[in-house]
Design a protein around this nucleic acid. Sequence first.
DNA 1: CCGCGTCTCTTTACAGTGTCAAGATTTATT
DNA 2: AATAAATCTTGACACTGTAAAGAGACGCGG
Lengths: 215, 215
Amino acid sequence: METRSKKADSPPVRATRYHHGDLRKALLAAAEAELAEKGVEGFTLRGVAKRAGVSHAAPAHHFKDTRALLTALAAEGFARLGALSAERVGNAGTDPKDRLIASGLGYIEFASANPALFKLMFGSDRPVAADEALHEKASGAFTILIEAVGDLTGAPPFDSEAGIRHVAAAWAIVHGLAHLLIADKMSFLEPMLERDREAVLAGILERITPDMRNG
Amino acid sequence: METRSKKADSPPVRATRYHHGDLRKALLAAAEAELAEKGVEGFTLRGVAKRAGVSHAAPAHHFKDTRALLTALAAEGFARLGALSAERVGNAGTDPKDRLIASGLGYIEFASANPALFKLMFGSDRPVAADEALHEKASGAFTILIEAVGDLTGAPPFDSEAGIRHVAAAWAIVHGLAHLLIADKMSFLEPMLERDREAVLAGILERITPDMRNG
DNA sequence: CCGCGTCTCTTTACAGTGTCAAGATTTATT
DNA sequence: AATAAATCTTGACACTGTAAAGAGACGCGG
């Protein structure tokens, strides 16, 4: 609507922006790579800049702070976490119990595939907890789980204290399993997981459901 | 046995060591305070040294690294976590179910009282995971939970795959609840918790137990 | 009682970090 | 085409962790 009036042919595509193309997006990608390689503690803004091929002060024009960059990255993580859970639920058939367990398996799969990002999202003090976009994405991811619980119990979970306890318990067991797995604290499970990871995890998550029907 | 032969009266007490008294212990205490105030990310070795009233390079003689200091601190944390869980179990009467829930409540209480330390113990990449003392203390804390599960099911949990699943599920729900609470992700529980924290948490942890009897 | 080595701590130095300010360069606007 | 605005670079600063070398305090053998 407003960009690319004339001579938009020699540079390949260049979505919207100027020198770099889209440095903001490139920085987010570089930050995720840096995070995955170095962990939350070893994460370095200068390293991110180098990875993106720009000077060490360039990120400042797109993210006020290192915290701001990490906050944006965490928000993106919540979006992907929610998307993965939702996708798993969509492929899970019609039994509400299966669907709830599937959403949990998606949650755990995300944590296992992106341990440093997951820790950033939940464990770290660095992202700004008050950030609005972050909060929104986090709530979106959370909604998948709430809906799955509601489908199983047959009532909106937040209408009763029992429903709230259901949600808390379901989230706790899923999150705890995910977190302990990526913290390498569940070595005693490893042999079983290597044999049949999904089934073993589903067998543990089964415990979410038993007394929910009459919640 | 080997120190304090003569003239051990003018300096107050001075347990074992020289200039400072016991700098190693003082550094651990200072590190815990620094951690509680600044969080895992804001933690600074120089800040610890200043807190203990020594120069910034003094800690090097007691801890090779910042990592080594944090590892020792995490080990201490696991010891206290185990002790608190055990104490709660000891005060919990004879019903195995109550005892298991009590150990979980102790776990959560520790996390709530020491959030930064708890995150360091489980969430951080900084402590050296391979450290032997750390591993031992962590296993000790974990043992409390395993025993409580075994008492409830009537069999050593690690003798069967069902028992292993019981342990994993119990630990996951306790740990997940603790972690989400200190990550401020369970705001929807706050009103209930303010009314009757222990009872609400116990009501959620109840879910650990139902199908364990015939495990 | 006294030098001597050893351990504890301090001082100094250095490479890296995040952030800020000022300049250079490219794009957009009028 | 000229001016304004944006993106990015360079340079600087305070702060970090760590290493090396020096100062101070202690125990031990004479």
